[in-house]
Amino acid sequence: MYLVKVYVTYKESILDPKGEAVNDALHRLGYTNVQSVVLGKYFELKLAASDRPLDAEVDELCDRLLANVNMETYRYEITEMEAL
């Protein structure tokens, strides 16, 4: 069993209005040293090993569903979970 942590964020060229709103709110709270905020999505997937390479499968499911590759980018970390 593997734990896959996937982080999806807008590409740098894409406007992130929600991140900007959070950035503005932090400034209003006095955290004026906050330079920027990126607001993305975080997924935890538990995958059983299959006959396919794991990273190929994760790439595919990210491309097909978790991220919209027109405007988003993703990265992930894979860790092997201890058998119960």
Binding site: I14, L15, P17, E20, N68, N70, M71
Partner: peptide, 17 residues
């Protein structure tokens, strides 16, 4: 239709939030 790939591009959050 954009998510399905039947039309190009994507719709993202309004600039004003």
């Amino acid at each position: 239709l954009t998510e399905a790939g039947l039309l190009p591009g994507a719709l993202q959050a309004n600039r004003s939030s």
